[in-house]
Design a binder for these strands. Structure first.
Length: 169
DNA sequence: GCCAACGTTGGC
DNA sequence: GCCAACGTTGGC
């Protein structure tokens, strides 16, 4: 299959990554050196493919808090390093160790992201559900569990707009 | 804590 | 290739 490179200048894509704030929250990203962290530990093939094949430097990423009292989008990050092998898959002491992964042909990939913006207020999941422009988002589909998702330009703009409004506006 | 829904594994 | 069983996700 031929790979078509995106044209220069109009190639930014948008994403959403989920994290459980008990494990790693937006403040943790801000506290990291240069606000950069590697997004390790993802063990889902579709999410892996996005990180390995499609996320590019300069792409923007919504930062979503899941499995917590107030699930929602809390800020924005950017991709600063595209897909490369996730070292934790080879670390026997790591909970994400994967004995089936061959170091010569790594199974799991990660990207580096840098914190760009903390929203003045979190946008709760319930509010996202109320916006008809967002009804196609994978995040909002019943049973959706994908931890790295695509976001369309339209959805991105609508959410950024929402982040500038007060709650419920 | 509950539980519905999901992705992966593995027997057949 | 089918599909039941399992472990995990994640809203509530």
């Amino acid at each position: 299959m031929t790979k078509i490179s995106r044209p220069m200048g109009s190639n930014r894509q948008y994403w959403l990554v989920k994290t459980e704030p008990g494990d790693f929250c937006l403040d943790d990203l801000w506290n990291a050196p240069n606000r950069v962290t590697h997004w390790d530990g993802v063990r889902n093939f579709q999410a892996r493919n996005f990180m390995r094949d499609e996320m590019k430097k300069g792409d923007l990423v919504f930062f979503y808090h899941s499995n917590c009292s107030e699930p929602g989008i809390v800020g924005v990050a950017e991709v600063v390093k595209p897909g490369y092998p996730d070292h934790t898959q080879f670390d026997k002491k790591n909970p994400h160790f994967d004995a089936s992964s061959d170091p010569k042909n790594p199974k799991w990939y990660m990207v580096d992201i840098r914190g760009v913006e903390k929203f003045p207020r979190a946008i709760p999941l319930a509010e996202l559900r109320n916006n008809p422009e967002l009804e196609g988002m994978p995040l909002l589909q019943k049973g959706s569990r994908l931890s790295v998702q695509k976001v369309s330009g339209t959805e991105w703009n609508a959410i950024i707009q929402t982040s500038k409004e007060s709650a419920g506006a």
